[in-house]
């Protein structure tokens, strides 16, 4: 019985957009015809290795369960999910800040002074850790997208969200009032695959690092 196809999970969206051009011309380049189609399992230039295109929030689960042997995902997602997987490298790209953002003119001290602070976020774990470090309490409003609207429409006093260039914040009249952490793309591996088949997984991991890091 030949070894089953080895799957690498790539993120859709912002990180995926950065990643695909970097892989062009490498052994892990994604098949351009398949990329233009709606299929989510894409052959690579290496026979026996295919890519899965997944939402970032789902990706760690595929890797932790061993369905995909390797994956690329933002460290913000990893920190929120706390799945049992290996994190082989900080690839450096997709760098952004996890920031507390409020409407222009609202200061951090004003937020601190609120008797009932409401923070909208899709990063509750990182937000709770920051609140603990700061000795603050807040009501967390869980959102999965478009958090920038929350302070404008009165759903929350501020948001905790990823900021890359600040353009989206500016467009909504928001500013960063505190930086909670930093995020970048990470190469992750299924613990079982990496430890039980290093001869198969490590060369692919090294090829990904060579293509994507820096």
């Amino acid at each position: 019985m030949s070894a089953p196809t080895l799957l690498i999970a790539f993120p859709k969206g912002r990180l995926g957009d950065d990643l695909v051009p970097k892989l062009a011309g490498t052994p892990l380049a994604l098949d351009p015809v398949a990329l233009k189609s709606r299929v989510l399992r894409i052959p690579t230039a290496t026979p026996g290795v295919a890519a899965l295109l997944l939402k970032g929030a789902d990706l760690p689960r595929y890797v932790a369960a061993g369905v995909a042997s390797l994956g690329i995902v933002g460290s913000d997602t990893l920190d929120e999910m706390d799945m049992d997987l290996l994190e082989l490298a900080d690839l450096g790209f997709g760098a952004c800040r996890l920031s507390l953002c409020a409407q222009t003119g609202v200061t951090l001290d004003e937020l601190r002074a609120k008797p009932h602070l409401r923070l909208a976020t899709k990063f509750p774990k990182a937000t709770e850790a920051w609140l603990t470090r700061e000795g603050l309490t807040a009501e967390l409003v869980p959102l999965s997208s478009s958090a920038e609207l929350a302070p404008l429409l009165g759903l929350a006093d501020a948001i905790v969200d990823l900021v890359q260039t600040g353009g989206t914040l500016k467009a909504h009249g928001l500013v960063e009032t505190a930086i909670l952490g930093r995020s970048s793309a990470r190469l992750v591996a299924a613990r079982g695959a990496y430890l039980s088949e290093p001869g198969r997984i490590r060369p692919l991991a090294e090829a990904l690092i060579a293509a994507l890091k820096g």
Partner: peptide, 11 residues
């Protein structure tokens, strides 16, 4: 000590 089989997902 940990025992694995090639392709196994868990020790």
């Amino acid at each position: 000590l940990r025992l694995w089989a090639p392709g196994a997902q868990q020790e």
